[in-house]
């Protein structure tokens, strides 16, 4: 396959950036988008051009490191699929693909396609946990949890933290990310004692860096973990409930 790539190049967070066009003549349909970048980078280095910086690690869709805008779409054309699992078989021979960093005010560009997503961790630090000191846990089976409940908690817990929901959203809202964690822990008995404080503090932390949700649903289409928009409703419900309580 012959693929033309237009890639965002930017050396530092403060420097100006722009798209640069490259071609890869020996691409194959089995290649992932990241493998295409590997292939291109090998050529660039051999021609003494600095390679394109991009984030990636596990290359099997679970670490959440990768994620770029592919022709303006977070992660790429295949829905609910991370960039590392987007393959060239989704494109025609001779295609031009534009790769840009996932954009949001909360995601400053570090270099080329790399962005800073630490704002997401600040939301987790604000309350995305159960405060159980090591060693204090009761016997695991002493609290039965209905299978359906556990399954739904697992649906929410599947978030890989790639941040594509924010990049896809016209408001740069992180409500899918926040809702997934709030909803998971609100479903489980272990999450009850801190349920209200968690919803309040995580929502407040999110509001510092991210926009509000206006039910567009672009996050749902981009999410590689298939998180349901139900979690956003759950988040709103949890925040409302928390506002009635002083706990």
């Amino acid at each position: 396959m012959n693929i033309t790539l237009e890639v965002w190049r930017q050396v530092t967070p403060d420097s100006a950036g722009g798209f640069v066009t490259y071609t890869v003549a020996d691409a194959t349909p089995e290649m992932s988008l990241l493998e295409l970048l590997d292939r291109l980078n090998a050529d660039l280095v051999d021609h003494r051009i600095e390679p394109i910086a991009f984030e990636h690690d596990c290359r099997e869709g679970i670490c959440g490191c990768c994620g770029v805008l592919v022709d303006g779409v977070a992660h790429g054309p295949a829905l609910n699929t991370p960039t590392c699992q987007q393959h060239l078989r989704s494109f025609v021979d001779g295609a031009t693909i534009r790769l840009a960093p996932m954009g949001a005010a909360a995601y400053p560009v570090i270099r080329d396609l790399m962005i800073d997503r630490s704002a997401l961790d600040r939301i987790i630090a604000a309350g995305g946990f159960v405060s159980t000191p090591t060693g204090s846990a009761p016997e695991a089976n002493s609290i039965p949890i209905a299978k359906e409940l556990a399954d739904r908690a697992m649906d929410d817990a599947a978030c890989i933290g790639c941040g594509a929901c924010v990049a896809a959203c016209p408001n740069a809202s992180a409500q899918l990310f926040v809702g997934a964690k709030v909803s998971q822990l609100a479903r489980l008995p272990q999450g009850q004692p801190e349920r209200r404080a968690r919803a309040r503090s995580m929502a407040a932390a999110a509001a510092l860096d991210f926009g509000a949700c206006s039910d567009v649903g672009a996050c749902r289409d981009a999410c590689p973990a298939g998180i349901s928009m139900d979690v956003i409703a759950a988040l709103n419900r949890e925040v409302l409930r928390a506002s009635w309580s002083r706990r």
Binding site: F129, V130, T132, T134, G135, S136, A137, P138, E139, A140, N141, I143, P144, I145, A146, K147, L149, A150, D151, A153, M154, A157, Q184, L185, L188, Q190, G191
Partner: peptide
């Protein structure tokens, strides 16, 4: 025990175990 207490959603049987 510890992971369950931290909210890890391990798979469950229908009876809740």
């Amino acid at each position: 025990d510890h992971f369950v207490a931290l909210g890890t959603p391990f798979a469950r049987e229908y009876g809740g175990g």
